[in-house]
Nucleic acid binder design. Sequence first.
DNA 1: GCGGATCAC
DNA 2: TATGGTGATCCGC
Length: 929
Amino acid sequence: MESTSADGGGFLSRMALNDNKAGMEGLDRERINKIIIESSKGSRFYENEAKKELQVNQRIEKMTLQRAQITEQQLQKAHTQVEKMVNELDMSRDLSRLIVHVDMDAFYAAVEMRDCPELKDKPMAVGSMSMLSTSNYHARKFGVRAAMPGFIAKKLCPNLVIVPCNFDKYRAVSNEIRKIFAAYDPNFMPMSLDEAYLDFTDHLEQRISWPESLRTHCLHTDITETGELQSKVPQESEPCVENLSPLLFEDSPSSTPSLPPSGEKVESGGGSEVFGTCVEEAVREMRFRIEQKTTLTASAGIAPNTMIAKVCSDKNKPNGQYRVPSNREAVMDFIQTLPVRKVSGIGKVSEKMLSSLGITTCAHLGQQMALLSLMFSETAWHHFMRISLGLGSTHMERDGERKSMSTERTFREMSVAEEQLSLCRELCEDLAADMKKEGLRGKTITLKLKNVKFEVKSRACTLPCAVATTDEIFAAAKDLLKTEIENVSPQQLQLRLMGVRISTFVSADDKKPQQKSIVGFLQQGSSGPSHGIVPNSVKETASHLPMERPPPAGSHILEQLPQKVPKLQGLPWAAGQTGAQVSVAGENQPQSFFQKAYAKKLSLQVRSLSETDKGQGSVCSGFTQPATDNPKSRGAVIEMHESAQGLLGSSGNPSITREEPVRVAPPEASASTSGAAAPDPETLTCPVCFGEVRTTDLQVFNRHIDLCLSGVATETPTDTDSESDGDGGPKGFTVIDEGVPEKGEDKERQKRSNPEDALSAFKTCDALRGPSVTRAEDTGDPGAKERRSGDKPLLDHHGSRRVHSPQRASSSHRGDPATQSSRLEAPPGHEGSTLICPVCQVPQNTHDLTVFNHHVDLCLNQEVLHMLAPPSSSSSSTMRPPVTAKRGQELHTARPNKGKSKRRGPPASPPAKKAKGRGSQNTIDKFFM
DNA sequence: GCGGATCAC
DNA sequence: TATGGTGATCCGC
């Protein structure tokens, strides 16, 4: 534990070596810390760390004062209450599951060592001089570890070899090991490329009756002439060959317990090994298979819940495993001496705060629960309580839907506003591309800035409607950035990082915002299940709906609360989505007359649109709205999270002046009638027959379109005001009004876009594009993103394994196609005829008009997207002029292509559609004007 | 809803 | 020369 009082002498505990990692025991911490501090002292980074340290210390001081005021009575009362809860929790303890946490040993480093044997004997790390992702065990002995800058690592270990990241490689290996994971738990929960939780319970139930043959695994290693290990073709069916146990780490504890004396088989050269039926043997087998397949070693923890399993996997790292048996005593024994810092969710700051209360182990945690309940939030102390009891998640939960998406980049100091705005746009382009891949739309845009003093600030605005395109996002982000620039004027913002985040996603089945938006219509099409086309697919996906494991009997409320432990990637449409197929079909069709005509019409419209201020359809104006302060109903947070991060979240940084948030006026009461905002409010143009429909009633207009699409309409209805359909029957185009700026807003926007405005001028200056951004090396861990990537591999079906556990593979779906409003009313007499899509001209294998309409929607979607894609734009990074690096500098492109392991899109991703151009808001108004 | 902070990987 | 990127959550406003 760090001594908080010892920080006085200028020593920053937060910068000290974090040796909370395998392979870093017994180091000369003093010497290492000295080097670390010496290397940093005086830097702006260091100064900022010092500032943060001070803040934490102040929090602790405050806490200490608070503690002194707690009376004995209060403590007593709290004690009885806590006691009661503890008992309840304890009784609800679920010891029935066998949870395994698997963690590859020094993953990236191990992969690099495998592929470059010369590295094996050397201290090495993966990353760059700026930041390391991981280090091998040899390097760890020098104090070199992940998240350490390479240049400091070099000082600790001058012979350190730093290898750049190669995520494609790691990903490939990861896919291999995941196939093995799936053999033991098809619903395994990947945490990152190299880590996962598995529930072995079901596997073991089956395994107990398996014949030995199913538990026999061959050795598939070969020895090259150089004596190096080589992984052979990873085929389980291959004949066994000579074995050599690969040793990545000379000091592997090899603590792997093997119940039967199976170890001899490894040495016997018999070429195969038989594994037992107990959980240790099953896990050992899994690790064996991983090693056979990848030549890399993994460590594992076995326990009744995720929290303990995670700790266990670290216990015998590398290349080892550890089990805490499934009984209360074993769990409590294990917990007693466990440092709180080892528990996932308790980080540097939490550790320090607890330490100031004399709490360093989980046993202390239990002893001080009454006090903790008085000093921490309910969320926090509940979490502490669960830790103190050795409780954790006992079931793998499906991943929830993504809540935000962001892109950020670090670069050399950038102070010129034009460059900053240009970079901002690039970030928005990246973000929009990512959004498109997942078919998402969000309402809140957050700009993140880090200045050269490492101070971070964020500014957000929430738009009235969800957005997704570059222009839409940029419109908001730009305003936020401009406001910040103006706020420091005439000084400059000296930035070292910029990021753009989008959140508050509007789900596909949330009809209101979704269907009001033509943008949604245009974009969602093939990417979301909300436009499911084929009825079969609907059924199929429904059958794949995840089945939750029932809560354990007698489960206490806290036990059932949502667990936050990383879950399966839940890309809503990772699997079974049909939109992609349809889109592809649509794209591949030759142009029909309809398409051509429609395209022509659209291109005219788009062209006329493009004359006006393109895309700056900012609905996020910089002005502040009179605070419609709502009484915050800040209810107590009830949810318990397995790893409740930020439990001790503090109350803001006093040193940063908080500015009034930029807000946006709520949408005017113009909803659903925006069609009237079109140039001619009296008529709308039908996209099918191109006839002018004299109405402003969208229902009427929709009905007309429906009829046209069904081939029934032969005349243009002219009844303008028959709002007959009070029944709210199925509609055609659900017309919209999102994003249509009010006149005033429009003006405001134009004002800010005035060419005289230096901050706006950049937009037209292509030369300013692609500022000299020093791209941060790829040291990031793609794992976090991986979690969301939805590329969960299928079960590795090899032979006779039959595990009847619920399938989660098809993931969740954002919207049920069946719930979407249908587009056509079925005209009588159409049941038997084949429907032909007027867009792609392909006969549709359905008589269901709802289904058919969905298809037409998608085809139209394709068309419009094609039309909107400017020939040169496609906003692809490849279009960016390369950035010229200064001499002696790496050539950094402004857009990292690789590190963005974000969203390794599954093949089920929507077909690559051309990006929309800089076109302005794609509102129905503009398309039909 | 915003902004800062914490945490995991 | 030089200290990351992405996503989530919590807390106090």
